[in-house]
Design a protein around this nucleic acid. Structure first.
Lengths: 122, 122
DNA sequence: TCGGAATAACTACAGATGTAGTCAGTAGTT
DNA sequence: AACTACTGACTACATCTGTAGTTATTCCGA
């Protein structure tokens, strides 16, 4: 079971999933645009993630290199599962149905998903 | 925009979405099995939901009748949107793809979804 | 009418979260 | 060798969350 990752922590993870290892400063640079967090804030989030053993640290002189210890897919699987369980009784179909009815699905989306499902069946 | 509803609060909402209006005691009875919360806890959650204007109260003598002010569908739409935005770049297809690859989709699920999509187009 | 039971309002409190500030050590520069 | 800037470690603090306890009021039954 992957530890709970908060919203802010998740932003950091996305950066590290895209490229790792990175130093705290490098991570801060990459979230600066989107979030405008101070370097200190980023460091706090990195510490918390490291404390949860979701990312690993490797000393590099006076600083650390941070890398994810959890695959993005693994994390997504856990979160998706929880989401579907909590809101749609664990069934994916109602979720898709809901998104469809809420007009979240364009015709293109529908075609894409149909294609995907065809491939799944072999 | 619907206010953020916490996990515990969501449990309460599910009860009220199923049947409303209900008094605090009635709500407590209905979540007792699943969650084992004390009556006080349920009342706190009801107060917080009322403070957020997600449920409404109507005086009934010395007590309150609570009812949802937000439709379940509306709420689900908002939460689903946020979820898909945050984790799948706003695209539903990758979500379905992910669930599929993570073996979260049974053959039956796939058939159901295909059926659903067919209806959507027709 | 009086006392107990029910009920809302208020208070509590620890842990998580978002968002930093401060401090102390170290590496590189002059 | 001394100073400065970078960096991790520790501290801070308001808000949200989960989970109640306490208090004051009010209604119903004896």
């Amino acid at each position: 079971m992957v530890e709970r990752i908060s919203d802010a922590e998740h932003e950091i993870m996305e950066v590290l999933w895209e490229k790792a290892p990175l130093t705290a400063t490098e991570v801060a640079d990459r979230v600066a645009d989107a979030k405008g967090w101070s370097l200190q804030t980023v460091k706090t989030l990195l510490s918390r993630l490291a404390a949860k053993a979701v990312i690993g640290t490797e000393r590099d002189g006076r600083r650390f290199q941070y890398s994810p210890l959890v695959e993005r897919d693994t994390y997504l699987a856990g979160v998706s599962r929880k989401f579907v369980d909590r809101l749609f009784g664990g069934k994916v179909t109602p979720l898709v149905a809901h998104l469809a009815e809420a007009d979240e699905l364009s015709d293109d989306d529908i075609r894409e998903i149909e294609e995907l499902l065809r491939e799944l069946k072999g």
